[in-house]
Each structure stands twice: as structure tokens, then as C-alpha cells.
Simulated assay, not measured.
Amino acid sequence: MLVKAIMIPFNQLRCLSVDNTLEEALIIIEENRLLSLPVVDGKQFIGVLSKENLYEEYFKNYCGQSKIEFLNNKVKNMVKTKIMTINQELPIQDAAAIFITSKYRFIPIIDNTNNLLGIVTHQSIFKEYQKIFGDRVNELTIYNCNFKGTIAKMTDTIAKAGGNIKNIVLMDSNVMNLEEIHLSIDCKDFEKVVKALKKNSFNVRTPRIDDK
């Protein structure tokens, strides 16, 4: 899945203008109960302004001035412009990796003319992964050495044991060339499915039974 499928589009975003004063910016941030917002000039993405950075800037460089003088500054003078942006065709797993290794609260999505198309957030990615792995379902993980025909044999074993695969996710375990295969399975007798897989020499780990 690509980030364009889960992004918050520009027309639904609350953005700051480069011509807003810092006072106006703080009011908008507070009213929307956010910590930071994108800054635009028309539709052109300029950067990000965060409440944290504003406080840091004030106490570091403007403490001798009045608050009124500081708050009358324009957003364009305080915006953080060195922000990572992404293309709307980026896979969501790559966006998730950016969040893991950074402190970004959201990632701006721009086109090839630097227009802001939207943003992707932690929450939107988490919701998609939750859909993949399911909620309160029969789950298990199989470690696989990527031998030819293994996936076909595994799905056939599950079907014969009365299981129906709802979701399947393949991940590299980064250990001895093993793949992790995460499955959520709909069935009447989950233990029967697990036993059938083990009987057919599958390395089954961490089965979780839906007990609702």
C-alpha cells in the first residue's frame, strides 16, 4: 500500500501561512490541540512550526525582549525548513521506518513542484497495520527457510484443517535467512490448525487464540 491511500489530504489540513504572526500560529496550534503544523506559502510547502521550538527560541534568543515583540514575529522567520518530505508513491512500510528512526510527528507529502499534497501520521500507519494483523483473532507466526513450495504447502495444510487465512504478512527476520510469516486465521478449531501445521514440520511460534 502507498502513503497516498492513507494520507490526510491538503484540503483537510490545518496549515500555517508564512504571513501568520507567531501569536496567531500559537492560537491555531492550541485550538487544534496539536504540537506542530505544516507551514505553506499558498500551496508551496515551506516547513514546520512547532510549539516546542517556539518556546526554545524565545528562551534562548528573545528572553530579553517582551513577549509581545516576540509574538509579533512572522512565522516565516521561525519556521523549520530542513524537514524530510516524501512522495505520495512511497510504500507505507518505508514511511513507518522513518517514524521509527526519527522524532517526526507527521511527514509532509509533496509533489515534484513542492506543493503540499497532504501528510501521513503515526496514527494513520498504525491503523493500517492493525487492519493487517487484525484485532482479537486467531494468530500465529511461522518461521520459514524460504524453500520452494513452502507457502503452498502451508496454505493447503491450513485449509484441510478447516482454517481460512484472513491476513498473511511476510517479513525478513534478519536471522539465518529465516522469513517470519504472520497469519490471522478464521476457524472453529484453532488448535487443530496449529497441530496440523506442526505435524507437517512447520515451525509454529506464538499462537494466540481468539477467546471472545
Rank of each mutant, 00 (worst) to 15 (best):
V40P: 04
V40H: 05
D41W: 01
D41E: 15
G42A: 11
G42P: 10
G42K: 13
K43S: 07
Q44T: 12
I46Y: 01
G47Q: 09
V48T: 10
Y55F: 15
E57G: 02
C63L: 14
S66A: 06
L71I: 04
L71W: 11
N73E: 09
N73K: 15
K80Y: 12
E89V: 00
E89C: 00
P91K: 09
I92Q: 06
D94M: 13
A95N: 11
A96M: 13
A97F: 09
I100D: 10
T101G: 01
Y104V: 09
R105S: 09
R105E: 14
P108L: 02
P108E: 02
I109W: 03
T113G: 00
T113D: 13
N114W: 00
L117N: 00
G118A: 08
K127T: 10
Q130D: 05
Q130G: 15
I132Y: 12
F133L: 13
F133A: 03
F133Q: 04
G134M: 11
D135L: 13
Y143I: 07
N146C: 04
K148C: 06
G149W: 05
I151F: 15
A152C: 01
M154A: 05
T157F: 03
G162P: 03
N164D: 13
N167I: 01
S173P: 07
N174M: 14
V175E: 14
